[in-house]
Write a protein that binds this DNA or RNA. Structure first.
Lengths: 332, 332
DNA sequence: CTGAAAGCGCTTACAG
DNA sequence: CTGAAAGCGCTTACAG
C-alpha cells in the first residue's frame, strides 16, 4: 500500500507554512508574498497535490457539478455531449451524465428531481421535457433544454431552427418540382415540429401541392413505409424527410418500388449523418454542427448558473449540403 | 428566496431526535428502534431531505463517483454510456463523463490522470489506451477499458470477440465464394485487430484466396476507396468490412463502378447500425448489443472497485444478421 | 436503543 | 503578509 492523496495540510507541512497559506497560494485569493506563493506551488506540484473537491464543495456550498441528461435513442447526442463536456470542464465543472428513458412525463420528472436535488448546480437536457410539468421552486438549479421550444424554459433554439428548409424547398420548386410530401419526426421534439411547420408554410406560400405530413418517429422504417403507402401516380414527388435516417428509409422504399431518383422521386434529409454522403444516391441534407451545439448549450447553462445573460451566437450552426438525391438543380 | 436544502440536522430537529439517529435511521446501520426509524424516515421524506453527497464523501473517504471516458468519434458509445450509467446509478454511483481527443498517448495520459486524481473511484474508458503508457500506482483507481486487449489491463473482451466472423466466412465459402478482401478498422482498436486476425486465420484455414487487408479507419471513405482501387477482374469478390460504416462505403464504391450485388460482389459489416437494414441492398452484419456491453463493462469496473471477482456473463452479445448484401445462401 | 462528539479537507473572515 | 480557528454536513466509534 502506498500513501493516500496528499492534503493541503501535507503540503503545508512540507512547505513549512500553514495550511491556510497553502489554500491562499493555490487559489491566488489572499495576500500572499510572491516568493511564498511560488514555493508552495512548487511543493504542491512535486507532491502531486490535488484539492479534494468534496471538501471544497462542502465549504463553498457549491457542488461544482452539472447534470447532462441523455437517453438511449440513437442520434447525435454523443457529439453534443462532447461539446458540452468540453465547455463545462474549461469552466471547472464536472459533468454527471444521466440516462433517462420512459415517457416525456417520466423524463420531465427526472429532470425536475435533478434540478431540485441540490447535487448539481445546473441541468442540461438533450431530451424534450414537458415545460408545464417542470415545476421548479426558486432554489432549484436552472434547467436548459436543447431544442426545446417553450417560453417558460431556457432554451437553445438553434437546433430547432428549420428556416433552411425554406431554401431547400425554394430550390426544388425552382427546379420544377410541384408535388411534395413531408415525413415528420416525433411531435414532442421542437426540431420536428419546426420542420413540419416550415414545410407547411412553404408549400402553402409557394402554391405547390402537398400530399401531406406522415411519419412521427426518427426511424428509417417511417420513411420506407411512407413511400410504400403512396399511390403509383404520386410520381414525380419531392420527399422532405425530417432527418437522414428517415430519408434513408425513403431511398429504400423507392428502391423496393422500382422508383428511380431523381426521375420518379427526389429526397432530402437532415443532420448530415456520416452515412449520408455514401448512400446511393447520396443524400441532400442539412448539416448540423452538433458538437458546437453542445458547446453553446453548455455556455447557456453556465450563464444561467451564474445569473448572467447568455451570449447570442451569431455564426450559423446549419447549412445545406446538396447531393445526388435531389438531382441536378439550376445554378444559384 | 426560499429555504436551502434541509440537512440531517433539520430532520433531527423536526423529528425530535438527534442528528446521529437520523443518520442511522437513513442508513439502516445502527441499532434503531423500528418505530423511531419509521418516524424519522417519514419526517425526512416530508421535508424532501436528500443527503449531501459531498459531506458523505468527505466523511467516508469515498467519492461515490466513477469516470467514463468517451470521445467525439461517431459510433455506438452513447448506447454503451447509457448502459454503463444505468448500472452505476443502481450501485449508488454518479458517473462523470470525460470527453477526450488526441492521440492514443494523449488519451492514455488523461485516463491515468483520472485514475490517479483521487476524485473518482474507478475509470471506464471506451477509447483504446496504450497499456504500456498507463503507469498506475497501487493507490490509483482501477481502470477498465472496453474492448482493450492486453494482459496488463482489466478488459471486457466481449466486444473484441470476432469469432462470429468464422461463421460468416464459412457460410460464404459454403455458398461458393473463393476470393475475399478485408477492409479493416484502426489498428489500435482491439476489436479491429481481432477481426483482422480472424479474417486472416479463416481464409488461410479454408484455403481461399485473399486480396489482402486494406483500410484502417472506421469510415465509409475507406470502404469506398478499397473498392475503387480493385482491378476489374477482382470480381466475383466477398468483402468483409470491419464495421457497417466501412461496408456502406463498399456498397457505394460498387455502385460507382457499376458492380452489382450479389453477382459481382458480396459485402458484410459489423455492429448492425440503424441504417444497415435500409441500405440497398440491405447489409449482412453482426449485431452487437452495445447497451448490454456498457452494462457489463460497468459491472466489471464495479467489481474492480470493490475488489471482487467480476461475474463472467454467459449470454452472447453478438449474433449474425443475414441480409441482402450477401445474396442467397444454402440453408443451414 | 439513543445521543454527544470527533473528524473528513477544504475556504475564509479575523487577529496578529 | 501569515496563521489559528470556525464550520460546511455527514458517518461512526463510543458512552450512557
Amino acid at each position: 500500500m502506498s500513501a493516500r492523496q496528499p492534503t493541503s495540510h501535507d503540503v503545508a507541512r512540507a512547505a513549512g507554512v500553514s495550511q491556510s497559506t497553502v489554500s491562499y497560494a493555490l487559489s491566488g485569493k489572499g495576500t500572499i508574498a510572491p516568493r511564498t506563493r511560488e514555493h508552495v506551488l512548487a511543493v504542491a506540484a512535486s507532491m502531486g497535490y490535488r484539492p479534494n473537491l468534496a471538501a471544497r464543495s462542502m465549504r463553498t456550498q457549491r457542488s461544482g457539478r452539472l447534470a447532462v441528461v441523455t437517453g438511449a435513442t440513437v442520434d447525435n447526442r454523443l457529439r453534443m455531449l462532447t461539446g458540452a463536456t468540453e465547455v463545462a470542464g474549461e469552466a471547472g465543472y464536472a459533468v454527471d451524465t444521466h440516462s433517462v428513458d420512459g415517457t416525456a412525463e417520466d423524463r420531465t420528472e427526472r429532470v425536475a428531481d435533478l434540478a431540485r436535488g441540490g447535487q448539481v448546480e445546473g441541468v442540461l437536457t438533450f431530451l424534450p421535457v414537458v415545460p408545464a410539468a417542470l415545476r421548479l421552486d426558486d432554489d432549484a438549479a436552472p434547467v436548459v433544454a436543447v431544442a426545446a421550444f417553450d417560453e417558460q424554459l431556457r432554451t437553445t433554439g438553434e437546433l430547432a431552427d428549420a428556416s433552411l428548409l425554406g431554401t431547400v424547398i425554394g430550390a426544388l420548386v425552382g427546379a420544377g418540382h410541384r408535388r411534395f410530401l413531408h415525413v415528420a419526426g416525433p411531435e414532442h421534439f421542437a426540431s420536428a415540429r419546426a420542420r413540419r411547420d416550415v414545410y407547411l408554410a412553404e408549400v402553402a406560400r409557394r402554391g405547390v401541392e402537398s400530399l401531406g405530413v406522415v411519419g412521427g418517429v426518427w426511424s428509417p422504417a417511417a420513411g420506407r413505409e411512407a413511400v410504400l403507402a403512396l399511390p403509383d401516380d404520386a410520381r414525380p414527388l419531392a420527399v422532405i424527410a425530417a432527418n437522414d435516417h428517415i430519408a434513408l428509409g425513403v431511398l429504400r422504399g423507392a428502391a423496393e418500388r422500382g422508383w428511380s431518383l431523381p426521375g420518379d422521386l427526389v429526397a432530402t434529409g437532415w443532420d448530415d449523418a456520416e452515412f449520408a454522403a455514401y448512400t446511393t444516391p447520396s443524400l441532400t441534407t442539412i448539416s448540423v454542427d452538433f458538437r458546437e451545439a453542445g458547446r453553446r448549450a453548455m455556455r447557456r447553462l453556465l450563464a444561467a448558473v451564474r445569473g448572467e445573460e447568455p451570449a447570442r451566437p451569431t455564426t450559423p450552426l446549419q447549412h445545406v449540403v446538396w447531393r445526388e438525391s435531389t438531382g441536378p438543380l439550376p445554378a444559384g
